[in-house]
Write a protein that binds this DNA or RNA. Structure first.
Lengths: 109, 109
DNA sequence: TTACTATATGAGTATATAATCACATAGTTA
DNA sequence: TAACTATGTGATTATATACTCATATAGTAA
Protein backbone atom coordinates (compact mmCIF):
# COMPACT_ATOMS: atom_id res chain seq x y z
CA UNK A 1 0.00 0.00 0.00
CA UNK A 2 1.37 3.40 -0.99
CA UNK A 3 1.60 6.32 1.41
CA UNK A 4 -1.15 8.13 -0.46
CA UNK A 5 -3.62 5.25 -0.43
CA UNK A 6 -2.88 4.74 3.26
CA UNK A 7 -4.00 8.36 3.84
CA UNK A 8 -7.17 7.75 1.86
CA UNK A 9 -7.97 4.67 3.93
CA UNK A 10 -7.49 6.67 7.14
CA UNK A 11 -9.85 9.34 5.79
CA UNK A 12 -12.55 6.86 4.83
CA UNK A 13 -12.26 5.09 8.16
CA UNK A 14 -12.56 8.44 9.91
CA UNK A 15 -15.76 9.17 7.98
CA UNK A 16 -17.37 5.96 9.19
CA UNK A 17 -16.29 6.56 12.78
CA UNK A 18 -17.49 10.16 12.55
CA UNK A 19 -20.89 8.91 11.50
CA UNK A 20 -21.09 7.10 14.84
CA UNK A 21 -19.64 9.93 16.90
CA UNK A 22 -22.77 11.89 17.73
CA UNK A 23 -25.11 11.47 20.73
CA UNK A 24 -28.25 11.52 18.61
CA UNK A 25 -26.87 8.98 16.16
CA UNK A 26 -25.81 6.73 19.03
CA UNK A 27 -29.35 6.98 20.39
CA UNK A 28 -30.60 5.90 16.96
CA UNK A 29 -28.32 2.85 16.98
CA UNK A 30 -29.46 2.03 20.50
CA UNK A 31 -33.08 2.11 19.29
CA UNK A 32 -32.46 0.14 16.10
CA UNK A 33 -30.49 -2.62 17.80
CA UNK A 34 -33.86 -4.13 18.77
CA UNK A 35 -35.27 -3.97 15.23
CA UNK A 36 -36.17 -1.74 12.29
CA UNK A 37 -38.14 1.50 12.76
CA UNK A 38 -39.62 4.34 10.73
CA UNK A 39 -38.34 7.93 10.89
CA UNK A 40 -41.34 9.15 12.88
CA UNK A 41 -40.83 6.60 15.65
CA UNK A 42 -37.09 7.16 15.70
CA UNK A 43 -37.72 10.90 16.02
CA UNK A 44 -40.06 10.28 18.94
CA UNK A 45 -37.51 8.03 20.64
CA UNK A 46 -34.57 10.39 20.32
CA UNK A 47 -36.68 13.50 20.97
CA UNK A 48 -35.68 15.61 18.00
CA UNK A 49 -37.33 17.06 14.88
CA UNK A 50 -37.98 14.70 12.01
CA UNK A 51 -36.04 16.80 9.54
CA UNK A 52 -33.02 16.66 11.80
CA UNK A 53 -33.37 12.94 12.42
CA UNK A 54 -33.77 12.35 8.70
CA UNK A 55 -30.46 14.05 8.07
CA UNK A 56 -28.70 12.02 10.77
CA UNK A 57 -30.16 8.84 9.31
CA UNK A 58 -28.85 9.68 5.86
CA UNK A 59 -25.37 10.15 7.32
CA UNK A 60 -25.52 6.65 8.78
CA UNK A 61 -26.86 5.18 5.54
CA UNK A 62 -24.20 6.86 3.41
CA UNK A 63 -21.52 5.27 5.62
CA UNK A 64 -23.09 1.84 5.30
CA UNK A 65 -24.04 1.57 8.96
CA UNK A 66 -27.80 1.60 8.30
CA UNK A 67 -29.99 0.62 5.37
CA UNK A 68 -33.57 1.56 4.55
CA UNK A 69 -36.57 0.57 2.51
CA UNK A 70 -39.85 2.27 1.64
CA UNK A 71 -43.09 0.89 2.98
CA UNK A 72 -45.99 3.01 1.78
CA UNK A 73 -45.50 6.51 3.09
CA UNK A 74 -42.94 5.40 5.62
CA UNK A 75 -39.24 4.76 5.28
CA UNK A 76 -38.02 1.96 7.51
CA UNK A 77 -34.44 2.09 8.75
CA UNK A 78 -32.47 -0.84 10.11
CA UNK A 79 -28.95 -1.74 11.18
CA UNK A 80 -26.81 -2.97 8.31
CA UNK A 81 -23.38 -3.20 9.97
CA UNK A 82 -24.38 -4.86 13.22
CA UNK A 83 -20.74 -5.13 14.25
CA UNK A 84 -20.78 -1.45 15.26
CA UNK A 85 -22.80 -2.46 18.31
CA UNK A 86 -19.67 -4.19 19.62
CA UNK A 87 -17.90 -0.82 19.79
CA UNK A 88 -19.92 0.28 22.77
CA UNK A 89 -18.53 -2.29 25.16
CA UNK A 90 -15.03 -0.96 24.49
CA UNK A 91 -16.17 2.65 24.66
CA UNK A 92 -17.81 1.96 28.00
CA UNK A 93 -14.57 0.41 29.23
CA UNK A 94 -12.81 3.69 28.41
CA UNK A 95 -15.45 5.68 30.27
CA UNK A 96 -15.25 3.47 33.35
CA UNK A 97 -11.47 3.71 33.34
CA UNK A 98 -11.73 7.50 33.07
CA UNK A 99 -14.12 7.60 36.01
CA UNK A 100 -11.77 5.43 38.09
CA UNK A 101 -8.83 7.69 37.25
CA UNK A 102 -10.80 10.80 38.31
CA UNK A 103 -11.67 9.06 41.56
CA UNK A 104 -8.02 8.20 42.16
CA UNK A 105 -7.04 11.82 41.50
CA UNK A 106 -9.70 13.09 43.88
CA UNK A 107 -8.28 10.99 46.70
CA UNK A 108 -4.87 12.61 46.25
CA UNK A 109 -6.24 16.17 46.29
CA UNK B 1 -31.44 4.46 34.07
CA UNK B 2 -33.28 7.81 33.76
CA UNK B 3 -33.85 9.53 30.43
CA UNK B 4 -31.41 12.26 31.41
CA UNK B 5 -28.59 9.93 32.40
CA UNK B 6 -29.13 7.98 29.20
CA UNK B 7 -28.52 11.21 27.27
CA UNK B 8 -25.36 11.82 29.25
CA UNK B 9 -24.08 8.33 28.46
CA UNK B 10 -24.73 8.91 24.75
CA UNK B 11 -22.81 12.17 24.93
CA UNK B 12 -19.83 10.62 26.68
CA UNK B 13 -19.79 7.70 24.27
CA UNK B 14 -19.89 10.17 21.38
CA UNK B 15 -16.87 11.99 22.82
CA UNK B 16 -14.81 8.81 22.85
CA UNK B 17 -15.87 7.87 19.32
CA UNK B 18 -15.18 11.42 18.15
CA UNK B 19 -11.66 11.13 19.52
CA UNK B 20 -11.12 8.24 17.09
CA UNK B 21 -12.89 9.87 14.14
CA UNK B 22 -10.04 11.79 12.57
CA UNK B 23 -7.59 10.59 9.90
CA UNK B 24 -4.54 11.84 11.76
CA UNK B 25 -5.63 10.23 15.01
CA UNK B 26 -6.31 6.97 13.22
CA UNK B 27 -2.80 7.17 11.77
CA UNK B 28 -1.50 7.63 15.33
CA UNK B 29 -3.34 4.51 16.50
CA UNK B 30 -2.00 2.61 13.52
CA UNK B 31 1.53 3.63 14.52
CA UNK B 32 1.10 2.91 18.22
CA UNK B 33 -0.42 -0.54 17.73
CA UNK B 34 3.15 -1.81 17.33
CA UNK B 35 4.43 -0.14 20.50
CA UNK B 36 4.93 3.12 22.37
CA UNK B 37 6.46 6.17 20.69
CA UNK B 38 7.48 9.75 21.47
CA UNK B 39 5.73 12.81 20.00
CA UNK B 40 8.57 13.57 17.63
CA UNK B 41 8.52 10.13 16.03
CA UNK B 42 4.71 10.12 15.87
CA UNK B 43 4.84 13.52 14.15
CA UNK B 44 7.34 12.16 11.64
CA UNK B 45 5.15 9.12 10.95
CA UNK B 46 1.92 11.02 10.44
CA UNK B 47 3.61 13.90 8.62
CA UNK B 48 2.27 16.82 10.61
CA UNK B 49 3.61 19.54 12.91
CA UNK B 50 4.52 18.53 16.45
CA UNK B 51 2.23 21.11 17.99
CA UNK B 52 -0.68 19.77 16.03
CA UNK B 53 0.17 16.16 16.84
CA UNK B 54 0.56 17.06 20.50
CA UNK B 55 -2.98 18.41 20.53
CA UNK B 56 -4.38 15.30 18.84
CA UNK B 57 -2.52 13.13 21.34
CA UNK B 58 -4.04 15.01 24.24
CA UNK B 59 -7.52 14.43 22.80
CA UNK B 60 -6.85 10.69 22.76
CA UNK B 61 -5.41 10.73 26.28
CA UNK B 62 -8.33 12.70 27.69
CA UNK B 63 -10.70 10.06 26.30
CA UNK B 64 -8.70 7.24 27.84
CA UNK B 65 -7.63 5.77 24.52
CA UNK B 66 -3.93 6.55 25.03
CA UNK B 67 -1.71 7.03 28.05
CA UNK B 68 1.69 8.68 28.37
CA UNK B 69 4.77 8.93 30.57
CA UNK B 70 7.73 11.25 30.65
CA UNK B 71 11.18 9.94 29.85
CA UNK B 72 13.72 12.72 30.11
CA UNK B 73 12.83 15.37 27.56
CA UNK B 74 10.51 13.05 25.71
CA UNK B 75 6.92 12.10 26.36
CA UNK B 76 6.14 8.53 25.38
CA UNK B 77 2.61 7.72 24.26
CA UNK B 78 1.07 4.25 24.15
CA UNK B 79 -2.27 2.54 23.58
CA UNK B 80 -4.29 2.22 26.76
CA UNK B 81 -7.61 0.90 25.39
CA UNK B 82 -6.29 -1.69 22.96
CA UNK B 83 -9.86 -2.80 22.22
CA UNK B 84 -10.28 0.20 19.90
CA UNK B 85 -8.06 -1.60 17.40
CA UNK B 86 -10.89 -4.10 16.91
CA UNK B 87 -13.08 -1.30 15.53
CA UNK B 88 -11.17 -1.14 12.32
CA UNK B 89 -12.12 -4.60 11.11
CA UNK B 90 -15.80 -3.59 11.32
CA UNK B 91 -15.16 -0.18 9.78
CA UNK B 92 -13.33 -1.85 6.90
CA UNK B 93 -16.30 -4.17 6.43
CA UNK B 94 -18.52 -1.08 6.00
CA UNK B 95 -16.12 0.40 3.45
CA UNK B 96 -15.92 -2.81 1.45
CA UNK B 97 -19.71 -3.10 1.46
CA UNK B 98 -19.98 0.51 0.27
CA UNK B 99 -17.52 -0.18 -2.53
CA UNK B 100 -19.49 -3.25 -3.59
CA UNK B 101 -22.74 -1.27 -3.59
CA UNK B 102 -21.17 1.44 -5.78
CA UNK B 103 -19.98 -1.26 -8.15
CA UNK B 104 -23.46 -2.76 -8.31
CA UNK B 105 -24.94 0.67 -9.06
CA UNK B 106 -22.41 1.29 -11.80
CA UNK B 107 -23.43 -1.89 -13.59
CA UNK B 108 -27.06 -0.69 -13.69
CA UNK B 109 -26.20 2.75 -15.07
C1' DT C 1 -59.66 16.16 -7.19
C1' DT C 2 -58.27 18.00 -2.46
C1' DA C 3 -56.45 17.41 2.04
C1' DC C 4 -53.38 14.93 4.74
C1' DT C 5 -49.12 12.44 6.46
C1' DA C 6 -44.23 10.96 6.22
C1' DT C 7 -39.98 12.07 4.63
C1' DA C 8 -36.30 14.75 2.51
C1' DT C 9 -33.78 18.91 1.33
C1' DG C 10 -32.23 24.04 0.68
C1' DA C 11 -30.77 28.08 3.10
C1' DG C 12 -29.29 30.44 7.02
C1' DT C 13 -27.18 30.65 11.53
C1' DA C 14 -24.69 29.00 15.43
C1' DT C 15 -21.26 26.20 17.18
C1' DA C 16 -17.36 23.01 17.15
C1' DT C 17 -13.08 21.48 15.35
C1' DA C 18 -8.55 21.69 13.15
C1' DA C 19 -4.34 23.84 11.58
C1' DT C 20 -0.90 27.30 12.01
C1' DC C 21 2.21 30.38 14.22
C1' DA C 22 4.24 32.35 18.15
C1' DC C 23 5.61 31.58 22.49
C1' DA C 24 6.22 29.17 27.11
C1' DT C 25 8.05 25.42 29.79
C1' DA C 26 11.00 21.60 31.13
C1' DG C 27 14.80 18.92 30.77
C1' DT C 28 19.63 18.22 28.51
C1' DT C 29 24.24 19.19 27.31
C1' DA C 30 28.25 22.08 26.35
C1' DT D 1 25.66 29.65 32.98
C1' DA D 2 23.83 29.66 27.88
C1' DA D 3 22.24 27.17 23.97
C1' DC D 4 19.54 23.47 22.56
C1' DT D 5 15.68 20.03 22.09
C1' DA D 6 11.03 18.11 22.98
C1' DT D 7 6.64 19.17 24.21
C1' DG D 8 2.53 21.84 25.22
C1' DT D 9 -0.61 25.86 24.88
C1' DG D 10 -2.82 30.56 23.63
C1' DA D 11 -4.72 33.08 19.85
C1' DT D 12 -6.26 33.38 15.33
C1' DT D 13 -8.38 31.81 11.17
C1' DA D 14 -10.49 28.46 8.17
C1' DT D 15 -13.55 24.82 7.72
C1' DA D 16 -17.02 21.48 8.99
C1' DT D 17 -21.10 20.20 11.38
C1' DA D 18 -25.64 20.55 13.50
C1' DC D 19 -30.00 22.61 14.15
C1' DT D 20 -34.08 25.22 12.65
C1' DC D 21 -37.50 26.75 9.59
C1' DA D 22 -39.61 26.77 5.22
C1' DT D 23 -40.61 24.22 1.43
C1' DA D 24 -40.74 20.19 -1.84
C1' DT D 25 -41.96 15.46 -2.92
C1' DA D 26 -44.38 11.11 -2.61
C1' DG D 27 -47.82 8.31 -1.19
C1' DT D 28 -52.59 7.84 1.17
C1' DA D 29 -57.34 8.54 1.95
C1' DA D 30 -61.58 11.23 1.77
Amino acid sequence: MTEKSRQIVYERQAEVLKSLAHPLRIAILDFLKDGEQCVCDIAKYVGSERSNVSRHLSVLVSCGVLECRKEGLKVIYSLKAKCVLDFFKCVTTCLIQQAKDSEKLLRVL
